[in-house]
């Protein structure tokens, strides 16, 4: 191989890559947080809801988890305008990733709902807690603690794999920025080498943050790697 790496162009445009990384992090955090709320609702319905609602949630989960995220976002961006619904490309990515994460998180969180000790729920019940209070004070802390590693892993999946889908509809997150820049001067290999490293750094920062949050808020002794 007699390819000569020339990183100078990359460094000259490093600001743009940093901006992309920042957007990636924002998209990841937002989609995960909103997805977690959707997943919490989905898991609560699957566990305690009446059958028509349970059935709807099942439909949602099956539909989302069996189609590619790329297609879902294409549908929002190119499909919905046919029905007169027009969202910006960033909105499409946010909504698409939220719906996507929500379905996976419904399944992940459902395991947490099922593993809550019945006696704790009965204690909450006899102490007069409402259903929402039981979920808030008993189920959620239990889930956060017992399946924290699974949640943290899933956050990384969204952060790295989920957000980069935005590139295909022109959202300038990290992958999108790299594509934009390298089409100008054809330094594909350099750009993609650098953003690969940036993704690793981003993942490391996110894992560290999650481990600290877990330790502080939920007494989870999470390993960082």
């Amino acid at each position: 191989m007699n390819y000569t790496f020339q990183f100078n162009v990359v460094w000259r445009n490093f600001d743009a890559l940093l901006e992309g990384a920042w957007l990636t992090l924002q998209l990841g955090v937002f989609a995960f947080t909103m997805g977690a709320l959707v997943g919490l609702l989905g898991a609560a319905i699957k566990t305690y809801g009446p059958w028509p609602l349970r059935w709807l949630v099942n439909l949602y989960v099956v539909f989302i988890t069996n189609t590619p995220a790329l297609i879902q976002i294409y549908f929002l961006y190119f499909g919905l305008p046919e029905f007169g619904i027009r969202w910006s490309n960033e909105a499409c990515v946010l909504i698409g990733l939220t719906l996507n994460a929500g379905a996976y998180l419904t399944m992940i969180l459902r395991a947490g709902f099922l593993s809550v000790r019945r006696t704790e729920m009965e204690a909450g019940e006899t102490l007069g807690m409402s259903p929402v209070q039981k979920i808030r004070y008993i189920v959620v802390p239990h889930i956060a603690k017992s399946i924290y590693p699974a949640l943290a892993n899933f956050f990384i999946v969204i952060l790295v794999m989920g957000t980069s889908v935005g590139a295909v509809i022109g959202v300038d997150e990290l992958t999108g920025q790299a594509i934009n820049l390298s089409t100008v001067n054809y330094r594909w290999l350099e750009y993609f080498t650098v953003i690969a490293v940036m993704y690793v750094v981003l993942t490391f920062i996110a894992s560290l943050g999650l481990a600290l949050v877990g330790r502080w808020a939920f007494r989870v002794k999470a390993r960082i790697f």
């Binding site: 704790e120 009965e122 204690a123 909450g124």
Partner: peptide, 11 residues
């Protein structure tokens, strides 16, 4: 108060 201790484990 039940036979099985049913304190909230996360508090």
């Amino acid at each position: 108060v039940f036979q099985q201790y049913n304190l909230f484990q996360n508090m």
